[in-house]
Design a protein around this nucleic acid. Structure first.
Ligand SMILES: NC(=O)c1ccc[n+]([C@@H]2O[C@H](COP(=O)([O-])OP(=O)(O)OC[C@H]3O[C@@H](n4cnc5c(N)ncnc54)[C@H](O)[C@@H]3O)[C@@H](O)[C@H]2O)c1
Ligand SMILES: NC(=O)c1ccc[n+]([C@@H]2O[C@H](COP(=O)([O-])OP(=O)(O)OC[C@H]3O[C@@H](n4cnc5c(N)ncnc54)[C@H](O)[C@@H]3O)[C@@H](O)[C@H]2O)c1
Lengths: 256, 256
DNA sequence: CAATCTTTGTGCACGCGTTCACAAAGGCAT
DNA sequence: ATGCCTTTGTGAACGCGTGCACAAAGATTG
C-alpha cells in the first residue's frame, strides 16, 4: 500500500476527498437498510444503485478508506457499516445544542432521526424568556444567558443555529467563543468564523431558487420547441408564463 | 435584440455553470440587503465579501450573465438585482405544494421567507384524515387524494416532500405523474425520478455527519500535535485551521 | 485632452472530481 | 490444481471549477 509515493507532497495523504466524505453518510444509510434486512454482502453495483451514485465512484470512494471488499463477491455489509461509522466519527456520542427554538428549531428538536446516529440534543436554547423552562420534545428550553455554561458543562462541539437571520452572527460568535467548532446554520446569513471552525448551511430559499432556475429553463426549452420563432406572446399553458425570451432580453431597466 | 446596439458575445447565455447558478441566490440576497440600504453601486470586492466568496469568482459568475458592471465603478445594485432575479426566474410567481404536514412541513408552511421571493404555498397536503380541513399557517390542509387535482388546477410545478422516508418515493411518483418537474426532498430517501425532473435534497442527518467527520479529524490533529510526530516537518504554518465552511456543496440534482 | 486611478472581464494554469476501462484477485466448479 | 467467472481496485484521461494576474475600459482629475 504505497499511498504516499506520488510526486505530490503527502501533506494530506490521510485526507479523504471532501466529495467522498459528503457521500459516506449516503452509503451508510443504504448499508444500514441492508443490514436491517440481514443482507450479508453487497456488490458495488447494487450499493451504488441504492445510494443513487455511479458504481465506479463508489468503489473509488471506498478505496480511500482501504481495501474492504472481496473481489468476485462484494462488500461485507456489517463490516462496512462499522468502517464508515468509525470514519465519520459516529462511534462516539456527539452532544448538540440548538439555538433558536421557533418553528424550525422545535421541529428539529422533535426530529427522531437526530438521535439515531449518535447525535444527542444536549440543550435547547432561546432568547425569549417566555420559552425558558418550557418543554419542547421533552427537553427543557434554557435561556441564552446559560449558553456558555451549557456548552462547557456538556462538552458540546456542534451547534445548530435556527434563530432569525439578524441574530445568527451574534449567536455564532457566542457559540464559537464558548468552544463550538462546528456549526450547522439554517438562518439565511453568511456567517463569518475564525479558522478551524466548520460551517455548513441549509437554506431552503436557495434550494427553491435553484429549482426555479431549472424550471424556467425547462419551460423556455419546451416553448422554443413548440414555437421555432420567438413570437408567441400569449402562449400560457398553465403556470409558467414567461414575459421575456431567454436570449433577446435586455429590458428597459438601464442604470443611469 | 431590440435595444439598440450592444456588443455582446451573444451565443453566451446558453449554459450557466451549475456552480454559478447555486451562488446566484447568495449574491441576490446580499444585493437585496444593499438595495434596502439604498446603496447605489457596489464593487465586486465588497459584494464578494458580503456573499462570502472570492471576488474573482464573483466577477466570473457575473460574466456568464453578461457585462453588467462598469469598470472603475462597480455594479449597479438595482440593475443587478433585476438581472439575477430574472435569470433565476423570480420575476414570476411559483406555486408550491408541501406534502407531509408534520413537524417539519408545518414549520416550512409557517416560514415567512417562503413568499418573500415569488414562491407561494399553493397547498398543504397530508395523508392523515385528522389533519384535513385543519388550518396550518392560515392555509387549509388538503387530503392527499386531492393531490392531482390541486396540482393541475394551480399549475404547480414545484413540490416539497416532508413525509416520512417510507412514503417519500410513493409521494414523489404521484407528484411526478401529476406534472411536478422539480422536487425538494427533506426525507432521508434517494428518490428515483424520470429524466427531466430535478430533485434537490436537504438532509439534516447528512450535514451533521459531515460535521462530525471534520470534528473528529480536528480532534485527532490536536492530539497529534501534543504527541510529536516525525512527519510534522512542513505542515506547521496554519496547518490545522484552513477549513472554513468551504461551501463544498455537492449538487444533488440526480437524473435517475 | 491627456494622465492617472480604479475596477471589471477574462485568458490561463492548476487541482479536484468523475468516469472509463481493465488487469488483478478471489471464489467456485470440475 | 486448473480454468472460468465475477467483481474489486485503480491508472489514466477528461471536464469542471477556482483563483491568479493583468490588460482593457471607463471614471476622474488636472
Ligand atoms: N421555518 C422554516 O421552515 C425555515 C426554513 C428555512 C430557513 N429558516 C430560517 O430558520 C430560522 C428560524 O426560522 P423559524 O421559522 O423557526 O423562526 P421563528 O421566529 O419561529 O424562531 C426563531 C426563534 O429564535 C429565537 N431567537 C431570536 N433571537 C435569538 C437570540 N439572539 N438568541 C437565541 N434565540 C433567539 C426567537 O425567540 C424564536 O424562538 C430563520 O432564520 C429562518 O429564516 C426557517
Ligand atoms: N423534523 C425535522 O427536523 C426533520 C429534519 C430532517 C429531516 N426530516 C425528515 O422530514 C420528514 C418529516 O419529518 P417530520 O418530523 O415532520 O415527521 P412527522 O411524522 O411529524 O410528519 C410526517 C407527516 O407526513 C404525513 N404523511 C405520511 N405519509 C404520507 C403520505 N403518503 N402522503 C402524505 N402525507 C403523508 C403524516 O401524516 C405526517 O403528518 C421525515 O422524512 C424526516 O426524516 C425531518
Amino acid at each position: 500500500m504505497a499511498t504516499g509515493r506520488n510526486h505530490r507532497p503527502a501533506t494530506r495523504s490521510r485526507g479523504i476527498p471532501e466529495a467522498t466524505v459528503a457521500r459516506l453518510p449516503l452509503y451508510l444509510r443504504a448499508l444500514t437498510a441492508l443490514s436491517e434486512r440481514s443482507v450479508p454482502t453487497v456488490s458495488s453495483e447494487e450499493l451504488a444503485s441504492a445510494a443513487g451514485v455511479n458504481s465506479a465512484k463508489l468503489r473509488k470512494d471506498f478505496s480511500y478508506l482501504g481495501s474492504y471488499g472481496t473481489r468476485g463477491v462484494g462488500y461485507d455489509v456489517e463490516y462496512l457499516v462499522y468502517q464508515i461509522s468509525r470514519e465519520l466519527g459516529l462511534t462516539q456520542d456527539w452532544p448538540v445544542v440548538i439555538v433558536g427554538i421557533g418553528n424550525l428549531g422545535a421541529a428539529l428538536a422533535n426530529y427522531g432521526g437526530f438521535a439515531s446516529r449518535g447525535f444527542r440534543v444536549a440543550a435547547l436554547i432561546d432568547a425569549d424568556p417566555a420559552l425558558s423552562g418550557r418543554q419542547v420534545a421533552g427537553i427543557e428550553v434554557r435561556h441564552v444567558d446559560e449558553l456558555e455554561s451549557i456548552i462547557d458543562t456538556n462538552g458540546v462541539s456542534i451547534g445548530v443555529i435556527t434563530t432569525p437571520g439578524g441574530a445568527a452572527q451574534q449567536v455564532c460568535d457566542r457559540l464559537v467563543a464558548a468552544g463550538i467548532t462546528s456549526i450547522l446554520n439554517f438562518a439565511p446569513t453568511v456567517l463569518s468564523v475564525p479558522d478551524g471552525v466548520d460551517v455548513r448551511k441549509v437554506d431552503l430559499s436557495i434550494e427553491l431558487q435553484i429549482l426555479a432556475f431549472h424550471e424556467q429553463r425547462k419551460a423556455a426549452e419546451a416553448l422554443a420547441q413548440d414555437v421555432p420563432e420567438p413570437l408567441a406572446a400569449e402562449a400560457a399553458p398553465s403556470g409558467p408564463g414567461r414575459d421575456q425570451g431567454p436570449d433577446g432580453d435586455i429590458p428597459a431597466v438601464m442604470p443611469a
